[in-house]
């Protein structure tokens, strides 16, 4: 597989350089919303949707910025687009799927400050991906995010039944778990060569 092929880009973002476990992006929802399997799953879906929209918009905006030679405005434009994309997803969801909208609650607007999304837009610009490659990259990143958050939620649901010493309760043990999970994902690094 050549490193520029669409399938490799997908696999790379999905497993080899998993956004959460290898690149440390989107940790806030990863640690904050992974308490229950259901919410983790819908959070993952919503994030993926925003990722897709913002990645496509970021691609066209970057073309425009390069055309007018005002690249220094990139960061401000991207964050504005992401904030609007989140707003858009929120409104669409409220109209067509009120149940899901209610389930996600406060976490929906918080997607704006999820660094995985801004990171995705910045990385794809940095790597000079074309439209198809950007699409593959964002789908892979979204799928990777879902995988990581759902795995983590599953582990934490099991953890509730475990008898832990008081000292390690809460964030400390979650981080240790994430460390082990990340160690496992390092095994996928071999896929890249």
């Amino acid at each position: 597989m050549s490193p520029d092929s669409v399938s490799f880009i997908f696999l790379n973002a999905f497993l080899i350089n998993n956004f959460v476990l290898a690149m440390f992006l989107g940790l806030c929802p990863f640690l904050g919303v992974s308490g229950k399997l259901n919410t983790a799953w819908s959070m993952g879906l919503a994030t993926t949707l925003v990722m897709l929209i913002s990645s496509i918009s970021a691609y066209f905006i970057n073309e425009l910025l390069v055309y007018f030679e005002i690249e220094f405005l990139r960061l401000i434009c991207y964050i504005a687009v992401i904030a609007s994309a989140v707003q858009l997803v929120e409104m669409t969801m409220k109209k067509f799927s009120p149940g899901l909208f209610k389930a996600l609650g406060i976490f929906l607007p918080l997607i704006t400050t999820n660094c995985a999304i801004l990171g995705l837009a910045l990385f794809q610009t940095h790597k000079d991906y074309d439209l198809y490659q950007s699409l593959a990259y964002s789908t892979g990143a979204g799928a990777g995010f879902i995988l990581a958050i759902v795995l983590m939620a599953g582990l934490r649901e099991k953890l509730e039944l475990a008898d832990l010493p008081n000292t390690s309760q809460g964030a400390a043990i979650s981080l240790m778990l994430a460390g082990i999970l990340s160690l496992i994902f390092m095994g996928f690094a071999g896929l890249g060569s």
Binding site: A172, L175, G179
Partner: peptide, 21 residues
Amino acid sequence: LPPGGFIVLGAWLLLFNWLKE
């Protein structure tokens, strides 16, 4: 590598929890 980051931060939090307790 990435796993080290998670584990070291977890260890610091453990230390602080222990001190507090």
